[in-house]
């Protein structure tokens, strides 16, 4: 569908929902290869449309949930007080734009390096780790009953999933073998099944000069071990060079855990968080390899897709730093 076609469909929708005469300033937002985001204005209000690429309802990659499921989870998160986008409408077939939803536009920074370095966020940075802990505690309290399309992904399930992917590449990586073994020998014991965000990391968080303003990118949400989210935001790749601050490059484990506990998330076992940090590091390494397959198959011939394969080695060094010290 062309931007013109999309503008017409959105115009019809705006007329029906808000009695408005069309939409204006329709612009595609950059970023997000798996989703399309469009910014547009209706009257004095600014909105964002998030939909499948090209409006095609083809099966989504990996473990991503349907867009309607994502919208339902975000609505429940907001109801519990999680800072998250306000979903105003979920698309249906008659809207002619494919699966997706419309949310109210929010202004804030999502580019990790700017959040970590710009003066504008100097006052926000020291607060972020604790705010992330608080947000995660609330996310893990979401009652997901009745929401369709949420997969249950335990540590063991996911380990099998990523091991199969790795074996499929037929490329020996001794460090990954070591990490798989390390994880298999330490199945997390106190696995508490909750709703898990699945991609809670620096880069998917919106920040304003005051602190955390919205948790974004809910497409990988699932049912699983709550500690998965705490480990993922500590993966060194998401520290963007600020390794000394384990939480997203901006904060300490202590602040993350105390925010989580204070907001009623329950006590945090650092060993479990480390398990998931190792897991997340390995997972990111395999995802880098997966993105190269998209390049090699011809699905995406960009230099960026090709080059990301060379970021797998960064996860190998991180894995050794995590499991092979002393």
């Amino acid at each position: 569908m062309t931007a013109d076609g999309l503008e017409k469909c959105l115009g019809n929708l705006a007329a029906r929902l808000w009695g408005a005469e069309g939409v204006s300033n329709l612009t595609r937002l950059s970023g997000g290869a798996s989703q399309e985001s469009w910014d547009f204005v209706v009257g004095d209000e600014r909105y964002v449309l998030r939909r499948a690429p090209g409006g095609q309802s083809t099966p989504r990659t990996g473990t991503a949930v349907p867009l309607a499921t994502e919208a339902a989870v975000i609505a429940r998160a907001r109801a519990l007080g999680v800072v998250a986008p306000e979903v105003v409408y979920v698309l249906n077939e008659a809207d002619g734009m494919g699966p997706g939803y419309i949310m109210r536009f929010e202004d804030g920074e999502t580019i990790a390096r700017k959040i970590l370095r710009d003066e504008a966020y100097a006052k926000a940075r020291p607060k972020l780790a604790r705010q992330c802990g608080e947000a995660l505690a609330l996310i893990h309290k979401i009652d997901a009953s009745g929401i369709e399309g949420l997969p249950e992904l335990t540590a063991a399930n996911q380990l099998d999933l990523y091991f199969d992917l790795y074996v499929g590449f037929d490329e020996p990586r001794p460090v990954f073998e070591l990490a798989f073994r390390w994880l298999k020998e330490r199945p997390p014991e106190s696995e508490k099944t909750t709703l898990v965000h699945g991609d809670f990391r620096n880069g998917n968080l919106m920040v304003v000069p005051d602190g955390l303003s919205a948790v974004l990118d809910w497409e990988l949400c699932h049912l699983g071990d709550s500690m998965e989210d705490l480990g993922w935001i500590c993966v060194n790749s998401w520290r963007f060079g600020q390794s000394e601050n384990p939480v997203g490059g901006f904060g300490s484990y202590g602040d993350l855990f105390s925010g989580y506990e204070a907001a009623g998330g329950g006590s945090v076992d650092p060993a479990l968080v480390k398990y998931w940090e190792v897991f997340g590091t390995l997972k990111w390494g395999i995802m880098c390899m997966l993105m190269v397959s998209a390049f090699q198959s011809g699905a995406d011939r960009s230099v960026e897709r090709a080059a990301i394969g060379r970021r797998s080695s960064e996860t190998e060094i991180d894995l050794l730093n995590l499991i092979a010290k002393d």
């Binding site: 060079g241 080695s313 960064e314």
Partner: peptide, 29 residues
């Protein structure tokens, strides 16, 4: 084994991303 994996991975990252933060920690290890 540990020494081999460290040396190999340090060499790999030195080619792929010599400024990567994890490389410094590995040298210390």
């Amino acid at each position: 084994l540990r020494e081999h994996l460290l040396a190999t991975t340090i060499d790999k990252v030195s080619i792929d991303q010599p400024s990567y933060s994890g490389l410094k920690s590995a040298f210390q290890a």
